[in-house]
Design a binder for these strands. Structure first.
Lengths: 244, 244
DNA sequence: CGAGTCATTGATGAACTTCAAAGGGAGTGG
DNA sequence: CCACTCCCTTTGAAGTTCATCAATGACTCG
């Protein structure tokens, strides 16, 4: 692999924020070249995590937030009775770990759903740098606000929508996020199991499976295990019943 | 009313952040006297809002966040089909409006549930000041993070818990928040209707009403319209089935 | 005091869960 | 390379919980 190719490959630990093609989705947007370099100095790029590896666990001391570089993560929290609740799926360019800021310990855990890599951003340094770079501070406020509005949309979904609407919404969300990353909006591989989808959407495995079967029978989806193809985007949006 | 009393009364528009008895719940915590004065300079204290008055509406341009000074607010968003989803109830000392930061327009609306007053904190000035006062920046990051973890607990509640567990959790949450404000943890008046509770918790009015009746019959609650008394706190916590 | 909203209670029905069983896929070890 | 195992997924049948429909009663606020 040539040096140029290495710089282009976002899974390569050597690539810096300025060259990372996730830039526009991640923190660096709205920063100038010099500011990006400063951000770059505090970012740590670790080796890839394997499927099942934890990035952090509930209760761990909080000291950093993480940008997904490649792969995908599941965030979840564990109740007193040991039951788990999936609180989100994170794809490349998205920021995880902000649940730890308020109490200085993580309110939930994050686990890799496949081989993945992240950029670790030490929070104390991010705060320090944010004090010097107004646009970085603004950007991080934005990202936290987006997390809030995302969770509030989920509240609506769980409170008001049927099983079909919930599953359709999730598929559309993944589709849109893929599209932002210039990947196919209509065809992708789910990195999570039916059980994880169900957990996230407040449904059982069986219900999720039945919804997939029904949507396939209706010609809206093509499903083969975790490979999904959206055959009728308009119909899926109609079913989801949301603007998303 | 003497001057001293006026300063102590947190509903009085003249009281400043340094004297406000909500201080420890609100933004000023962890700031020193001088810093509080600077914060105080950017805070606008308006006249009280009447029940039903909107603080902001979905789609409004975002330019400030709001700290509840007295009374209570309901935050909600309106779907394409006109249905409303309550996303939160806000009591004195709590910060509202952070849903607008990411898109520069409010993702939802906020309405007073009774006569209420707020401190308006212009966001651009808050950002500016946060750049100069690291402890203020930190505090605001904390508050946003708390909003995120709060919403994620709600996701768990809506996804996994029964009607009784949801209603019990809400009552315990209000109880705990009252307690923080040195009000009674066991006896209070609900400022929201059964319908609003149901909407928030993903239930119908009828179900909420039935839960109240059942809990009353079991001797856990004393209910008289919107007056609620928690007669058996331990039982209520057992029903809620959460640590909260 | 009257109109309208809010709350309660009952009967019915639908959506989803739970319980149960069997059919693949992927990875592992012989 | 094949067979075995484990987990994931699918599908069916029965059971619960909550929503819906309906009607009455009780506050509250002009």
């Amino acid at each position: 692999m040539s040096t140029v190719e290495a710089k282009r490959c976002h899974t390569n630990p050597l690539v810096n924020c300025g060259d990372c093609r996730l830039g526009p989705l991640c923190l660096p947007i709205a920063l100038n070249t010099d500011e990006i370099d400063q951000l770059d100095d505090i970012v740590k790029r670790g080796r890839p995590l394997n499927k099942g590896d934890h990035l952090y666990r509930q209760g761990d001391a909080f000291h950093a937030v993480y940008a997904v570089r490649s792969g995908s993560f599941k965030a979840y929290s564990t109740g007193d009775d040991g039951t788990e609740q999936v609180t989100g799926f994170y794809l490349p360019g998205e920021i995880m770990g902000m649940d730890g800021i308020s109490s200085l310990s993580h309110a939930g855990s994050a686990v890799a759903m496949e081989t993945s890599s992240v950029c670790e951003i030490p929070f104390s340094k991010l705060e320090e740098l944010s004090g010097q770079l107004p646009s970085l501070q603004h950007r991080f406020f934005q990202i936290m606000s987006r997390e809030i509005t995302k969770d509030q949309k989920m509240l609506t979904l769980l409170g008001k929508n049927s099983a079909e609407e919930r599953v359709a919404s999730l598929l559309l969300s993944i589709s849109a996020r893929n599209s932002h990353r210039h990947l196919s909006a209509s065809r992708f591989r789910l990195s999570m199991s039916r059980a994880e989808i169900g957990n996230y959407m407040g449904l059982t495995v069986e219900t999720v499976s039945r919804v997939f079967s029904r949507l396939q029978k209706q010609g809206v989806l093509g499903v083969e295990n975790r490979e999904v193809e959206i055959l009728d985007m308009a119909a899926l949006k109609a079913i989801a019943n949301v603007s998303t």
